[in-house]
Design a protein around this nucleic acid. Structure first.
Lengths: 235, 235
DNA sequence: GCAAAAGTGTTAGAAGTACACCCATGA
DNA sequence: TCATGGGTGTACTTCTAACACTTTTGC
């Protein structure tokens, strides 16, 4: 039995990761359902209309899985976007109606936007090949469909709020093992402030949940950096 | 010409004020449209379905004005509530359909919740008489319609987030002139932490935007407290 | 040996915390 | 004169900020 689509409410997912220099966001191609052509060439956030019998959080997980294959990603709702004009671009409207095989015209959609902080890891090729999805540095984001550029902007501001109220969330953006320089870089990038590295290093060492590993970087043409890990149990 | 109602999206307004001891929330009676009887006796937050041609922020302002007469209240969106079961109570559904003169059945409503911090002032009687609206201490809130108890709980948690990221917002909750003890009380109430009064007083005096007035309390049977005001320009 | 990034310590000032007594007022 | 809440100072600790040189590694 086919599930009924709610034609007034959608979810959109902003996935942010850190590439060593800056925040990146995951975007997908605006493809049409049922065929694989690139009839439209725009990028958008992974998002879609919800089903009538589906909670918002569930919808966000489902949509993310359908459009990127990613599962078990912790996301939290951060803002609703409901401007009447957010569907002003007629080609976005047409795309939506085709994508969802809708017969009647869409009128107005309020979207609930979700945010996740996560590490950019080896799934890159799979995302690219199987889902036409890619990580883009936030400084290089092209024009996106709907009001998705605005949604990304709001998400980036929200990162600062989240990490300042809960500093441990910063480690969501880093690989399992990371160097002091990487943590320093992500910290500065997220807060937008520059911090003296020596003071930062000292503070790091006073944090019981940042533990130094024996392992070091390999094959770098300078002194190898120690790796650290985040011990969530000690946070 | 009548405006078209969007039967899938609503806004709800959580107005929080401080009564000297704790946070209070403004609730209204669940009355039916078109007559003044008290056929239902439940309380709810001021909220309603949005119109098709209306932005979310505008809808929140309109609904608040209609249900409480309050205008020019700064509100900000803080969370969307969209659980499928949030309309599980049949009498809430029936009330909604009657209130909006809807002929078809409502299926599912996502509500965007708005929050305002403001002072509880002299409008009490007007709210009570003309709108059947009243301020209730959050420790004494009765069972509300829909999922409005959950919405209030989330709002109260959001106050801490807002005031910790922008401490000046605390003054929104206080009257124009206030005593050090009042500021101390609201601070403790919002943060949930107790703070030594002497240290608090010292910190207060180091804040350029808290200015002491010549005026003092009158007619109290103890030493009269100074009044202070908040100077937003110096914040 | 040189280029490149890693790693480390001290000091001064600011901010936060703990703590107890006297003051002004009306009844 | 007493009950009630208002108002203040000091010492200690912790955090923050400013600042420059030596170490390791690969080429």
């Amino acid at each position: 039995m086919e599930r009924l689509v709610n034609p007034y409410v959608s979810v959109d997912c902003v996935l942010l990761g850190f590439d060593g220099t800056q925040l990146n966001v995951l975007i997908v191609r605006q493809k049409e359902s049922g065929n694989d052509d690139n009839s439209t060439n725009n990028y958008k956030l992974p998002g879609s209309l919800i089903y009538m019998d589906e909670n918002l959080d569930e919808a966000a997980q489902r949509v993310l899985k359908q459009l990127t294959g990613l599962v078990q990603i912790r996301m939290e709702q951060f803002h609703a976007f409901g401007n009447v004009k957010r569907l002003a671009n007629p080609s976005d409207m047409i795309w939506l109606e085709r994508f969802h095989h809708l017969e009647h015209h869409l009128e107005r959609i309020v979207t609930i936007a979700y945010l996740s902080l996560l590490r950019i890891d080896r799934k890159r090729e799979k995302l690219q090949k199987e889902y036409d999805a890619q990580w883009i540095p936030i400084s290089e984001i092209p024009q996106l469909a709907f009001d998705h550029n605005e949604i990304v902007d709001t998400a980036v501001k929200t990162v600062e709020r989240i990490t300042s109220s809960n500093p441990a969330r910063i480690f969501d953006l880093l690989p399992r093992k990371f160097t002091a320089a990487q943590l320093h870089a992500v910290y500065q990038s997220v807060t937008g402030k520059s911090v003296d590295f020596r003071n930062f290093h000292k503070k790091m060492q006073s944090m019981p949940y940042v533990v130094q590993l024996d392992e070091k970087e390999q094959g770098v043409n300078h002194r190898a950096a120690h790796y650290f890990k985040f011990d969530r149990k000690k946070a």
